[in-house]
């Protein structure tokens, strides 16, 4: 009973230790950042939306590659999404390659998108597909509902590249070195991340423990 109370308090305060600072690197090199933001109230604690903020070397402002699409000088401001989290940053030659890949892969996928908010395909499915197609080793948080959508059935390597997953809309399983163990029930992710250590939950920032780095 006491541990449930502690868990409630931790969730209510969005307890993630050592998150990445929301700071854009200088524009001397190309930059790609994977960012997610919570949906507007009252969905802000249960659903997030991802975007790739991309900027070539020397450019002043970022362009967002996402379902929707926008941009600006501040890569973390993407209305109406709130409480942004920076998940990963790619710089230099790796970012140049990523931008080329995202520009090549995103438009046809988005044009063919038959959007369904739940269970998918949606903006989070897009984020996960782009990570895998462009070989960008990162993952979206548990509250990115739809990130594991693979249609009626799907199996393959995870977006972080160190694990495998098997998915149906009802049940799914992801196991990996970096990914930890995630069980997916009707699109909700529960599990344990071994490094950085955290409990994976489909609420708030998607984890209780250390930030995913």
């Amino acid at each position: 009973m006491r541990s449930l109370g502690i868990l409630a308090a931790a969730l209510a305060t969005s307890c993630v230790i050592a998150p990445r600072k929301l700071r854009a690197p200088p524009n001397d090199q190309a930059t790609v950042m994977l960012i997610s933001g919570g949906l507007a109230h009252p969905m802000d604690e249960i659903a997030r939306h991802p975007w790739f903020a991309v900027r070539r070397a020397g450019e002043q402002s970022f362009r967002f590659i996402e379902v929707g699409g926008g941009g600006g000088e501040d890569p973390f401001q993407n209305s109406p999404y709130v409480d942004p989290i920076l998940h990963e940053v790619w710089r230099g030659a790796e970012a140049e390659r990523a931008i080329e890949c995202l520009e090549r892969e995103a438009p046809p996928w988005l044009n063919a998108l038959d959007y369904w908010p739940y269970p998918g395909p949606n903006s989070n499915t897009f984020g996960d597909v782009m990570l895998r197609r462009c070989d960008l080793h990162a993952s979206l948080p548990a509250t990115s509902i739809g990130k594991d959508y693979r249609g009626w059935f799907g199996a393959g390597v995870t977006s972080e590249g160190t694990g495998v997953q098997i998915e149906t809309p009802l049940l799914g399983l992801k196991v990996g070195l970096q990914e930890g163990i995630e069980v997916h029930v009707i699109g909700l992710a529960f599990g344990v991340d071994f490094w950085p250590p955290a409990i994976i939950l489909p609420l708030g920032p998607g984890r209780l423990g250390f930030a995913d780095r």
Binding site: M1, L4, G5, L7, A8, P42, E45, I46, L203
Partner: peptide, 10 residues
Amino acid sequence: GAVIGHSIDF
């Protein structure tokens, strides 16, 4: 026992 959750209402 105990119940813990997150609820949204519209």
